[in-house]
Simulated assay, not measured.
Amino acid sequence: MVPVLDYLGKLGVRKSTFTEFLRRYPQVLHASVVVDLQPVVKYLQGMDIKPNDVPRVLERYPEVLGFKLEGTMSTSVAYLVGIGVARREIGGVLTKYPEILGMRVGRVIKPFVEYLGSLGIPSLAVARLIEKRPHILGFQLDDKVKPNVKLLLEYNVRHTSLASVIAQYPEIMGIDLESKLLSQRGFLSSIIQLTPEDFGRVIEKMPQIVSLSDKAIVRHVDFLKECGFSMEPMRKMVVGCPHLLALNVDIMKLSFDYFKSTMDRPLDDLVTFPAYFTYGLESTVKPRHKMIVRKGVKCSLAWLLNCSDEKFEERMKYDSIDMDDIEEESSFDLNSLMKPSTEESDSEYEDDSDDGYE
């Protein structure tokens, strides 16, 4: 017993975790350090789990020390790599959610991946979701995921939008969804007269709305009221761009001040194109507005903003405005998930620490 505990201690497993460690996997006391434990530790290190993270993995999932290297551990990792999880990401995936090493491919992982595929999410997109949030594999397929998908349909999310909803907010598969949907739909109906059909469209565009706190919603609605919008325009704006309820209010105020004082446009322009608030003021709005002023161009907010920088530069070469050239408002693109994962900044959105999400 002592050699085992000494070995775990030298690895970095904290003594304060020993009681829980032994409660969950008491068999470790009868294991051989050389025959049973060291091979597993070497395997974890071979999966690119950093040495400092190995003890944290063991603390979180001590049962891993009892697995056969050629069994569940290797098959689960091989399957994930097979569907497109990048080999360089495996270490991070297992560090975040080592329980994957104990999951049966045929009983747990493969049915989960195939079900998401049936909803329209390609396996490579599922792989990207797993890279970022590996714990989604722990969501119970029959007890939680499928019932939650059924609930989304009952709350007017269209079947064709399910893939996008899940890809944008994978947590929606595993949370206690029914109570959130019921309370949020009722609250939005009372505060901005959102209809049940409106609520479905809002979820499709920003599924995180189900976890947005009442306090955050009220703060943003109050801001829109202060800007001069009445109930019906606010309803249209939120349906058109639900992110209005989650953006950083201080940044929204700066954007609105510029809109009124410098751009000198009517409020109806924001009702028509509420996504204005999602564009960077310094990086996009100001430089583009200055350019159209210099050229004497009169255009809609959508024509001004809803395109790439390259496309906008091309538009500035036109002799006249082609209204057919306006791109559709951007929506979540599943193809974006196919690309290798990169770190993204959400600086223009409310800080989660400020009671934004529940």
Score class of each variant (00 low, 15 high):
158 R>N: 04
94 L>G: 06
168 Q>C: 00
232 E>N: 13
310 E>T: 12
193 Q>D: 14
23 R>C: 09
145 V>T: 06
73 M>T: 05
68 K>G: 12
32 S>Q: 04
120 G>F: 03
81 V>P: 02
43 Y>M: 13
143 D>L: 15
133 R>G: 00
54 V>K: 03
256 F>V: 11
311 K>S: 14
246 A>H: 06
108 V>Q: 14
82 G>Q: 04
111 P>S: 10
146 K>G: 02
179 S>G: 13
122 P>S: 06
338 M>A: 12
153 L>K: 07
126 V>M: 10
358 E>I: 15
159 H>W: 09
351 D>Y: 07
145 V>H: 03
306 N>W: 10
29 L>A: 06
17 T>S: 13
305 L>H: 08
110 K>Y: 13
187 F>C: 05
162 L>E: 03
51 P>G: 08
191 I>F: 05
241 C>Y: 00
236 K>V: 01
142 D>C: 00
230 S>P: 12
18 F>S: 03
343 E>Y: 14
308 S>E: 05
20 E>Q: 13
158 R>E: 11
337 L>A: 08
169 Y>P: 00
241 C>F: 02
262 T>M: 12
65 L>M: 04
306 N>H: 14
91 G>F: 00
312 F>G: 04
276 Y>K: 05
203 I>V: 10
333 D>Q: 10
90 I>F: 04
235 R>P: 15
183 S>F: 07
321 I>N: 04
23 R>S: 11
102 G>K: 06
245 L>D: 06
139 F>T: 04
113 V>Q: 01
156 N>R: 09
295 K>G: 14
180 K>H: 09
203 I>K: 01
355 D>H: 09
105 V>H: 00
120 G>M: 03
329 E>Y: 10
104 R>T: 15
218 V>R: 05
331 S>I: 09
124 L>P: 08
275 A>Q: 12
282 E>S: 13
299 C>R: 03
205 K>I: 06
162 L>D: 02
171 E>N: 13
110 K>C: 02
143 D>P: 03
194 L>P: 02
140 Q>L: 14
234 M>W: 08
236 K>L: 14
197 E>A: 12
15 K>E: 14
110 K>Q: 11
17 T>K: 12
246 A>D: 09
330 S>D: 14
60 R>Y: 15
50 K>M: 08
12 G>W: 03
257 D>E: 14
61 Y>S: 11
70 E>Q: 13
92 G>P: 04
51 P>A: 08
174 G>T: 02
217 I>M: 10
267 L>S: 05
11 L>G: 05
104 R>S: 15
185 R>W: 08
95 T>R: 05
96 K>I: 06
62 P>S: 09
26 P>Y: 02
255 S>V: 10
68 K>E: 14
11 L>P: 10
177 L>C: 06
8 L>S: 08
159 H>K: 14
286 K>T: 06
318 Y>K: 11
305 L>R: 01
356 G>Q: 07
358 E>P: 03
26 P>F: 09
353 S>Y: 11
113 V>H: 02
202 V>F: 01
18 F>I: 09
304 L>E: 04
149 V>P: 00
202 V>K: 05
342 T>N: 11
219 R>F: 07
274 P>F: 04
164 S>Y: 00
238 V>M: 05
265 R>Q: 11
260 K>N: 07
2 V>Q: 12
299 C>H: 01
31 A>F: 15
